[in-house]
Design a protein around this nucleic acid. Structure first.
Ligand SMILES: [Zn+2]
Ligand SMILES: [Zn+2]
Ligand SMILES: [Zn+2]
Ligand SMILES: [Zn+2]
Lengths: 200, 200
DNA sequence: TTTTGAGTTGATATAATATAACATTCTCTC
DNA sequence: GAGAGAATGTTATATTATATCAACTCAAAA
């Protein structure tokens, strides 16, 4: 029951990405996805069509997406997809460092550091990032502040704690939202899309 | 269907704590609970018997407890309790700052800073704490490192972000667990109780 | 080419976490 | 004691996540 056009093709990439309606993303996103391709190839893991598709959906969103939101979007090109499909893919993307989980939202965002810069993070220490989460527009910004990391390393060391991983989630108002309610407390319209998930 | 003995009593405290099998905790814990009493009184909210009981259960645990673990324990003294009872109480305790939620564990711990020191945190700025979470024994330590907070404030300010709340969860090995597997990688027994929740 | 095995995905069921909505009881005030 | 507001009881359901086993894909070995 193949959906056609997946036989006897050739691609120059090491990590063939065939089958499954590719649902072509924007050029910008294809660039990022190709970068993800190369990163996976370098790690010896495969960015399959499904994984690429889901990563693409995440890149196409300006907000963190929950597993079931992702599932819903995936189903437009992939009817019959079920939760384990999404969760397995998310696990893969988390393990390869292509995405992050925002714990307090039970949602996921692409890793901007891994994909936006062309270098991979190999050889570097812990990829300890911080997330600025706007409680009004749900926009998330990933930071990687050395000062924060070193303060945490210092505190851990003082406590005799052997750090393996850290989660830093900062909730508040992004610049746009803070600006738009500067003098007053009312909600003017502003550039960011409104959240369709009630912030908790 | 009252379980008896809850009529016409008198207590000197402002925040009467009657009814419901008190399930007397240790002296140490009663001290902490009484402190919580005073804190609530000062805030004009009520630490009812149920809330006191649940906070006591949390204080009695050396590990974070999930809502359903708490429910299970509550039911020994409070048969028929249901999830909303626990979640509502947790909401109250979170709002009054008596406990914290560990997001990555979907679990809760008492706030050591609020209860261990006798001062309340009124007048102080944000109660921004950090949690060291041992992935082996599940023990959680609450820190309040000024250096971490100021690094975060600084980073937020630079990003034009108006911070309201921050979650910092540091996962790794506590001193005890790190020590016990120092040279080798095997799991010797050590002082902390083993986790009965598989760390994720 | 066929086989084979690891990795990936499909599919069904269910677990674990959390909330909605409304009824009842409690507490304080009048 | 009656009334109002807070707290709790109760039932049902929503949301998030995982377990399990079957089927398929792909790449390399035979
Ligand atoms: Zn990142
Ligand atoms: Zn915003
Ligand atoms: Zn605290
Ligand atoms: Zn430990």
């Amino acid at each position: 029951m193949g959906s056609g056009s997946n036989m006897s093709y050739h691609m120059s990439s090491m990590t063939k990405t065939p089958a499954l309606a590719p649902d072509r993303f924007s050029d910008r996103m294809e660039t990022l996805l190709n970068r993800a391709d190369r990163l996976c190839a370098a790690k010896g893991v495969r960015l399959t069509a499904l994984r690429r598709q889901i990563l693409g959906l995440m890149l196409a969103s300006d907000q963190p997406l929950g597993a079931y939101e992702l599932l819903e979007r995936l189903q437009t090109s992939h009817p019959g997809a079920a939760p384990p499909t999404v969760y397995r893919t998310l696990d893969f993307l988390l393990e390869t460092g292509l995405i992050h989980k925002i714990e307090r939202l039970s949602s996921f965002v692409p890793c901007t550091h891994t994909l936006d810069h062309d270098h991979s993070h190999e050889g570097e220490g812990i990829h300890a990032t911080q997330f600025l989460i706007c409680s009004q527009c749900s926009h998330v910004t990933e930071l990687e502040e050395p000062a924060i990391l070193s303060a945490i390393l210092e505190a851990s060391r003082n406590a005799g704690f052997r750090l393996r991983q850290s989660t830093i989630e900062i909730e508040g108002l992004c610049a746009a939202c803070a600006g738009s309610q500067a003098g007053a407390d009312k909600d003017h319209g502003h550039s960011h899309q409104e959240s369709r998930r009630t912030p908790r």
